[in-house]
Computed example of a mutant assay.
Amino acid sequence: MTGTERSTVVTDDGARLTVYTDGSSGGGVTVILSHGFLMTADAWRIQARELSARGVRVVRYDQRAHGNSAAGEASPTVDRLGADLAEVIHATTPRGPVVLAGHSMGGMAALTVAARRPELIKSRRPHVALISTACTRAQLVPGNHPLHWAKAAARASYSYPVCWLPPAADAVRRRLPSGHPWAFRPFAEHRGDTPPPSRQAIRRTHTEQIALLWKSLRTYTTAERLSALNDLADQVEIVTGEFDDWIPLSQTRQLAQQLPNARLHTPVRGAGHRLPTDRVGHAAVTQVLSRMAETALRESESADAEPAHLQGEGA
């Protein structure tokens, strides 16, 4: 992988999104990667390394209020994350073939772009990978197994205090060991061009911002608003893990029902929710993105080679 280039995209509400670009700009196709809740762009480190080594340009970024990205003036909602993703696309890849991949909350951001900005989908016609994500609200209980109920109880034990007592949560977080993923160190910053590890995702984020985003995840939906994405047909692929304990398979099937023209992969055997870094699932994600990049580049080269009069007839 060539050196990672760090830059900043400033959104219309003043959020400063830290962007990391790997690979050569002459690669012809760009893969844009959007990460999940309480993670950073480092979640895509395997894909960034392997794709850029194959000559693909890779753009990944820390979501607002995550990693090295600031929160901005607007309330952190899934809709706002979708607007951020659209701005990252415009700022980093204004032209050329694009592959768009979103994991979990990052996939919800991509779905929000399709729902709120269908003209962007229609004009750029990206290949889209929806990884371990859903078109409806996040659920505390991802299934009926007793273990899922136990995990739901554990999540509720911290999500409710986070949502309803943010100042108290901040006070507790300041006293946590520096290595703890919930530790609050508002002035800490990860140095260097590469993104901070996911365990440092919310090190500088006030609990109120986390709470607002979690509440948005609990009410979010793009159901019945995905026609622009469905029109891309086989350019859209849905990937999940067999043992996903955040997005239940019922939600994956619901997403597939909203996108009947998309390709629904068989769940990756033995894989959990964090597919991009999962011990079993990361290879499947890399393979899907690599194939999408090759196809997008081939289609672009074919369109460029097509005689002008034929392009006009197809318009």
Rank of each mutant, 00 (worst) to 15 (best):
S7C: 05
W164C: 04
A171I: 00
V78P: 05
N68H: 01
R218T: 14
K122M: 05
N261T: 10
M292R: 00
T11Q: 09
L217Q: 09
E224L: 00
C135L: 05
I46N: 04
I247L: 02
S132T: 09
R64Y: 05
V78T: 09
L176M: 15
G312W: 07
L212K: 14
Q235W: 12
P267C: 07
L111M: 12
R298N: 11
M292F: 10
A315E: 14
A169R: 02
M292W: 01
P97I: 05
L33F: 02
G67R: 03
P195T: 11
P196H: 10
E5N: 12
D278T: 11
R54Q: 15
R124S: 13
Q287A: 15
E299G: 12
S132H: 07
T40C: 03
T286P: 02
A169M: 15
G67T: 11
E189M: 08
C135Y: 04
R279Y: 07
T11D: 10
A86C: 04
G102S: 06
L226Y: 02
A171P: 01
G14Q: 04
L51I: 01
L100E: 07
Q258Y: 01
M39C: 14
T219K: 07
P161T: 11
L176Q: 10
L229P: 02
S300N: 14
P276K: 00
S104M: 00
S198D: 13
T207N: 12
R298M: 06
P267G: 08
D22R: 08
S216R: 12
T221G: 01
I202K: 03
E294T: 14
A74D: 14
R274V: 15
A43I: 13
Q200P: 00
R204I: 09
M108N: 00
L275K: 03
E313I: 13
R185S: 06
R174M: 13
Y160V: 15
S302P: 03
V113F: 04
G82V: 09
L255R: 06
D170V: 05
R204H: 12
R137D: 02
V162A: 11
R218I: 07
H265R: 14
Y160C: 03
V78A: 01
A129Q: 03
M105F: 01
K215W: 10
A115R: 06
G312L: 13
I131R: 03
T240M: 02
W246A: 13
P177T: 03
V99S: 10
P260V: 09
P195D: 04
T194M: 02
A152R: 04
Q235Y: 06
T221N: 02
P276V: 10
R274Y: 11
R199P: 00
L100I: 06
G270V: 05
E73T: 12
V10R: 15
S216G: 05
S25A: 15
V78K: 02
V172D: 05
D170I: 01
H35D: 13
V268Q: 01
L51T: 02
Q254F: 14
V29D: 12
